[in-house]
Each structure stands twice: as structure tokens, then as C-alpha cells.
């Protein structure tokens, strides 16, 4: 039962490693630019609560932003590319259960997201070391592992759901541009919720990414805009919801080959 799942997971990991410049290096370059411009160059000018620097505040947020984007990109691009090459029809023909397909592609997304997020953290730590003279530690390592895996799964499943319905690359791009990107930037990556207008605060609290980013921030620097228990509950519930959305999309969406 595990062999089909592990084979598909193996294929997924090798797939993104085959195009490492596109899947790993490009997102890392943009993360490093964010860290350098916002964290290092502008960081001293941004006022936040006492006890930690803006760079330390920014690193977990950027980590999660990178993880979310890469998890979504990995699973969605895997499906749309397969629609283009005809490999998706292959997956339908072989004796792989819907569950095995979803979990293998979901964990493939987790692996890529975690990989890029971990390197983002290491690069951020180097900037932090040069800025402050000491190493940025992880306050709650198990919490961080939990948020990385579960958040990767949430956005891996979301990517799958979007890709199963997409009839062109444009449609998938629209999901990314009009849903994922605004939610990410308004989820508290760059600023604390207390700096937002009260009305925006209400919207931010309805955004699941706010809980993911603050959960990771609590895991790394030990502070958060929201209770850690609430963050864990929201992320766990999101995995459950998006798994079922992806499963429904897999069963009802299109496997047809794009010509």
C-alpha cells in the first residue's frame, strides 16, 4: 500500500530537483532580496515591540511566505504540467488510489516548501548574525516543524484543487495573483497586526495565513499576535478542509489532456 505512495512522492521530489534553478534558486533569490531590503536596509527604521529586531520579526514571516508559495507552486505546477504532457491520464489509469495521489503530491509540496523555507531561514540567520553579532535560535523547534509540515500540506492541497479545475495556465495564475498573493501580503509577513487599521485587523483575523505566519513567528522568536493554540487549531483544521476540497476536485475535476 505504501509502495505506490512512495513511488509517486519520489517522482515528485525528483521532478522539482530536476529544475532546481526554477524551483529552488529563483524563490531563494527573491527571499534574500526581501531580507536584504526590508530586514537589513530598512529594518532599523521600522519600529516594533521591544525585545527583538525587525529582521528577527521578518525572518519567520518570510520563511512561511516562501513555504506557502513553493508548496502551492509545486503541487499545482505538477498537475498542470502533467495535463500538458498527458501524464495525468497515466495517473488515472494506474492503480493509485485518490488518497495516495493526494498525500504523495501533498508531501512533495511539503518537501519543496520546507527545503526553500529552511534555506531562507539560514540566509536570514546569516544576515542576523552580521547585524546583531549572535545567532538567531529557534525558540520552539517542534512547533516550527509542525507549522512547516501542516502549512505545506494546506497549500499543497490548495494547489492541487486549483490545478484539477484549471483549464489553462492563465486560470492557475489568476488563483495565485488574486487569492494567494493578497492573503500572503495581508497575513502579517511584513507588519504586526497592531499597526493595521481596526477594520483591516478584522479582515486579517479571518485570513488563515495570519495564523500560520504568527504560529511560525512564535516558534522562532517566541512572540506572536495570536494565541499559539488558536494558530495550531486553525492550521490543523485547514489541512482537514483543504484535503477534502482537493479530494473532491480530484474526483470531479478535469483529467483531460491540454492540447
Amino acid at each position: 500500500m505504501m509502495v505506490p505512495f512512495l513511488s509517486l512522492l519520489n517522482r515528485e521530489i525528483r521532478r522539482f530537483l530536476r529544475v532546481i534553478v526554477q524551483t529552488i534558486v529563483t524563490p531563494l533569490v527573491s527571499s534574500c532580496l526581501y531580507l536584504f531590503i526590508f530586514g537589513v536596509s530598512l529594518g532599523d527604521k521600522v519600529q516594533i515591540n521591544a525585545g527583538y529586531t525587525y529582521l528577527a520579526f521578518l525572518i519567520p514571516g518570510l520563511m512561511m511566505m516562501t513555504l506557502i508559495n513553493n508548496s502551492f507552486q509545486n503541487s499545482s505546477s505538477s498537475i498542470v504540467t502533467s495535463k500538458f504532457t498527458g501524464e495525468l491520464e497515466d495517473l488515472r489509469v494506474v492503480p493509485l488510489s485518490s488518497q495516495a495521489i493526494l498525500w504523495a503530491l501533498g508531501f512533495g509540496a511539503v518537501v519543496r516548501g520546507t527545503f526553500v523555507a529552511t534555506i531562507t531561514f539560514l540566509v536570514g540567520s546569516i544576515f542576523f548574525y552580521f547585524q546583531k553579532g549572535f545567532v538567531l535560535g529557534v525558540a520552539h523547534p517542534f512547533e516550527l516543524i509542525f507549522f512547516m509540515i501542516f502549512s505545506g500540506l494546506v497549500f499543497g492541497f490548495l494547489g492541487l484543487a486549483a490545478a484539477f479545475w484549471a483549464k489553462s495556465f492563465d486560470q492557475l495564475g489568476a488563483v495565485n495573483a488574486f487569492i494567494l498573493l493578497p492573503l500572503t501580503y495581508l497575513g502579517g509577513v511584513f507588519i504586526s497586526i497592531e499597526h493595521l487599521h481596526p477594520i483591516l485587523q478584522i479582515f486579517t483575523r479571518m485570513n488563515p495565513l495570519f495564523y500560520i505566519i504568527n504560529g511560525a513567528r512564535h516558534a522562532v522568536i517566541g512572540v506572536s499576535d495570536v494565541d499559539i493554540g488558536t494558530s495550531i487549531a486553525v492550521v490543523s483544521f485547514s489541512v482537514f478542509v483543504f484535503y477534502w476540497v482537493a479530494l473532491w476536485s480530484l474526483r470531479k475535476g478535469s483529467f483531460a489532456r491540454w492540447s
Binding site: R14, L91, V93, V94, R257
Partner: peptide, 26 residues
Amino acid sequence: PQEIVSHGFFSLKEVLTFHSGYYGIW
């Protein structure tokens, strides 16, 4: 199938290994 599947990222041996796995053959 009627239409050729192109498997853009992998070699013949790799695709056949993955495919065997889908049928539960490690």
C-alpha cells in the same frame, strides 16, 4: 493510449521504475 505521453523530466528507466511502483512493485 493513442496519444504519446512525453514525460518531460525523466529518463526511460526512471519512468519505468516509478510506474512499477504505482503497481506496488518496488
